[in-house]
Amino acid sequence: MFGLKDDWELDVPDRYFSLEDYEGGTARWCPGCGDLAVLTAVQRICRDEQLPPERTVCVSGIGCSSRFPHYMKTYGFHGLHGRALPVACGIKSRRPELKIFVATGDGDCCSIGAGHWVHAVRYNMDMVVMLFDNAIYGLTKKQTSPTTPIGLSTNTHPRGAWLPPLNPVAATLGFANVSFVAQTVDWNPAHLYATLKVAYDHKGLSFVRILQRCPTYTKDVFTELQKDPSQLLLLTGGDSPTLDAQSAKMFPNQQAHDSRDLEAARRVADQTAPLPIGVLFRDPARPCYEDFTTVGLGMSPADKLKGLEREFDKFAV
């Protein structure tokens, strides 16, 4: 009114989403569980990207971390143990516009669902796959997982795990058509958020291994890493996120890494002390399977009927 021009208006989007719009049921993870930090990071990405909740789908398998979709206020699919990836790929196959986050654990992804892990990476469909790696089966109460450190006592190996653990990032970098592999930790929110954000921005399957603390069953597994940041190697440059100066200062060990160099990525991935965090590899040019599975999407009924008659003709006598 006073002094304002008639045509002045604030350019407000029809809908604005705040964090609350992504907050589902109260998380029932144990106090101190690393999953909570990941949940918060994903909700922030959704808010920052203004993802409409109805076009966002969180898919999971079974396990503690697979409760993830229940705590988001988006569409969700809490399916079968080990089978999050085929479901996520199926959703994406004919609905490429949906944004997909997959929550899977070390048992879910690297053990019972290992076959799907190999192939989903090869399909390279656009989604963020978060491996919540707490090095233990939590929901079923402390059984050895493929990433349990050798010697750690569990209910299935009370005298200590027998075999050396599997390295999820090194394994993923060995799969055909891999396009994005990153590693981060739940206890550094800045790095966690920034890494997931880069993963979200990548078109293709972004595989992010998140070292995740389990206060109940593997409370000491990551303690050293957490207490002594020099045991982590912050990857810089390339596609790795740039941390603000203050956050970056926390990491005495840093290394410039060319994330477009697969061989370099494999060398870095094999390293466990110090443990690399950041983007190990990214290739935006790898083919995405949905570019093939969406063939004919939106074909009109009339065209479908025409096509069908032509198919009938092939069998006509």
């Binding site: 085929p86 479901v87 790929c89 199926g90 959703i91 196959s93 004919r94 192939h119």
Partner: peptide, 19 residues
């Protein structure tokens, strides 16, 4: 798909998404 289970999971996923 890579196996029978995945074929079913893929179909379930597509169906869940309305197709």
């Amino acid at each position: 798909a890579e196996d029978e289970i995945a074929a079913m999971g893929f179909a379930v996923g597509a169906s869940y998404a309305g197709k």
